[in-house]
C-alpha cells in the first residue's frame, strides 16, 4: 500500500488542461492581491497558484484543480453534456450562460467524474467560480446529486471541491430546491456509509454553504477561503457593527468549530490521499 502511494506521488505533477494553459500566456506577470508581490505566471501555476511569498491562494479553474489532484490521465467525466435552460425566462440569463461557456470552455459551473487520486478511486466534483460565480442552478444540482448517487452505488468516496456564491438567482426557486436535492443524495450516501469529503475553497457561500458544502464527513478548507451563509454587506447592514477582520474566513470557521482542518493547497493532494487510504 505505501509503496503504491509513493509511486503514485512521484507521478504527481500539475498538468493543467489545454484551455487553462491558454488563459495565462507564458511570460506574463501576475500581482498577488494579498501581498503585492509580482509573480511569474508560469511559476505561479507550477506552485498550484499559491503565492510564494505570502501563501495567498489564487482561484483555480475546474480543469486546473483536476490537474492538481487527480492522477494524470485518470479522470473520466460524467454528465458533461447537461445544459442549463432558462426556465423563468429571466432577463439576460441565456446570454450570460453563453458568455460564461465561451469564457470557460465549460458547459456549466461544476465538473463531475471519477478518477484515481494516489491510486485510490474516487468520485470527484469541482465547481468553477468563473462560471456564473459557481452558482448552483438545476444543472449544478443535478450533476452533484448524480455524482453522489454514483459514488453510493460504486461505494467510492466522493470528494467535492466547492467554489460558489450560492444558489443561482436566475433559476429562482428551482435553484433553491437543488439544495434539498443534493442534500437528499448525500443523505443516501450517509446511510450507506460512503465517505464524503467536502473541500471548501474561495468562495463557498449562501445556498451552497448551507447545503452539500457543510455536509462532509470531513470538511476541509483552503487557507483564507471566504465561507459563510450570509453576505458580509447584508450582515453589516443588519447588525450595524464592525465585523472582525477574519470574519467568515476558513480560519474563523476553524476557530468556531465548523471545519475539521484548514489545509494549504500545496498539501491538499497528500492530505486527501491519506484520508482515502484510511477509508480504503
Amino acid at each position: 500500500m505505501f509503496k503504491e502511494l509513493f509511486r503514485k506521488q512521484r507521478k504527481y505533477a500539475t498538468i493543467p488542461s489545454e484551455q487553462a494553459k491558454k488563459e495565462i500566456p507564458e511570460g506574463i506577470m501576475q500581482k498577488c492581491p494579498s501581498c503585492g508581490t509580482i509573480l511569474i505566471a508560469k511559476e505561479l501555476e507550477k506552485n498550484l497558484k499559491v503565492c510564494k511569498s505570502c501563501g495567498y491562494h489564487f482561484p483555480m479553474s475546474a480543469p486546473e484543480r483536476i490537474g492538481s489532484i487527480v492522477d494524470v490521465g485518470r479522470f473520466f467525466e460524467y454528465d458533461a453534456e447537461l445544459l442549463s435552460e432558462d426556465p423563468l425566462s429571466f432577463p439576460d440569463y441565456t446570454k450570460k450562460l453563453k458568455q460564461d461557456q465561451e469564457k470557460t470552455k465549460l458547459n456549466e459551473a461544476v465538473v463531475t467524474g471519477e478518477g484515481t487520486i494516489g491510486g485510490y478511486p474516487a468520485v470527484i466534483g469541482v465547481m468553477d467560480s468563473r462560471f456564473r460565480m459557481g452558482s448552483m442552478g438545476s444543472v449544478v444540482g443535478e450533476k452533484i446529486a448524480r455524482a453522489a448517487e454514483r459514488a453510493t452505488t460504486k461505494r467510492y468516496p466522493f470528494i467535492l471541491f466547492c467554489a460558489s456564491g450560492g444558489a443561482r438567482m436566475q433559476e429562482g426557486v428551482l435553484s433553491l430546491m437543488q439544495m434539498a436535492k443534493t442534500s437528499a443524495a448525500l443523505e443516501k450516501m450517509n446511510r450507506e456509509k460512503v465517505l464524503f469529503v467536502s473541500v471548501l475553497t474561495n468562495p463557498t457561500t449562501g445556498g451552497v454553504s448551507a447545503s452539500f458544502a457543510s455536509l462532509g464527513d470531513i470538511n476541509i478548507a483552503e487557507p483564507g477561503a471566504l465561507i459563510g451563509f450570509a453576505g458580509r454587506r447584508v450582515i453589516e447592514q443588519t447588525v450595524r457593527q464592525k465585523l472582525p477582520d477574519d470574519f467568515q474566513t476558513a480560519e474563523f470557521l476553524l476557530k468556531h468549530g465548523q471545519l475539521d482542518m484548514v489545509v494549504s493547497r500545496l498539501e491538499l493532494r497528500d492530505t486527501l490521499i491519506k484520508i482515502l487510504e484510511f477509508h480504503a
Binding site: 434539498a180 437528499a184 448551507a210 457543510s214 455536509l215 470574519f247 468556531h256
Partner: peptide, 22 residues
C-alpha cells in the same frame, strides 16, 4: 444574517436539516 449566527454555523444548521429531513 448576524455575526453570532455565522459563528454558530448557520450554514451547517440548515444543511444538516436538509439532509436529515430527507
Amino acid at each position: 444574517p448576524g455575526i453570532e449566527a455565522e459563528e454558530r454555523g448557520q450554514s451547517e444548521a440548515i444543511a444538516r436539516n436538509l439532509r436529515e429531513m430527507a
